[in-house]
Amino acid sequence: MMNRLHIGMALVCGLSWAASLHAQDSTAQVTTTLAASCAACHGPQGNSLGGTPTLAALNKDYFIQRMQGFKNGSIPATVMHQHARGLTDDEIIALAAYFAAQPRQTPLTAPHQAFQGAQ
C-alpha cells in the first residue's frame, strides 16, 4: 500500500524516475523502520543477544507461519500474540522478507563500565 501511495504521489507531482526510485527506497525504509522497533527484544537487525529468538536470516515462510499462528491464537504465546495482532498481514509479510534478508551474525554486547557516580 505504501509503495503505491509513494509512487502515486511521485507521479502526481510529476517527479522524475529518480524520485520514484527513491519512493521504492522509502517503502523499504518503512519496513526497515518498523523492523527496528523489534530490536528491543530481538536485537539489532534481528540478531538477538540471547533469551529471545534470532530473527535474522529466518526462513520467510516460517516467520509468516509463526506470526499468523500468534495472531490467530493457534500458537500459544506469552507476548508475541499481542504484537502479531497489532500488525497487518502485509506488514507481517514485509517483516518476514526483511528479516530473511538480514545476515545472521554475533551481535556486539553493550560495553559495561564501572559506575562513575553521576546523578
Partner: peptide, 29 residues
C-alpha cells in the same frame, strides 16, 4: 490486540533480562 501478562513468572523474568540485553545492545553499539 495489545495487552498484559496473565501473571508474573520466571519465564517472563528471563524475557525481561533478554529485553534489557537487547535494548542496551541496540542503543549502545
Amino acid at each position: 490486540g495489545g495487552g498484559v501478562s496473565t501473571h508474573a513468572s520466571s519465564q517472563e523474568g528471563d524475557y525481561a533480562q533478554a529485553w534489557a540485553q537487547n535494548i542496551w545492545a541496540d542503543t549502545l553499539t
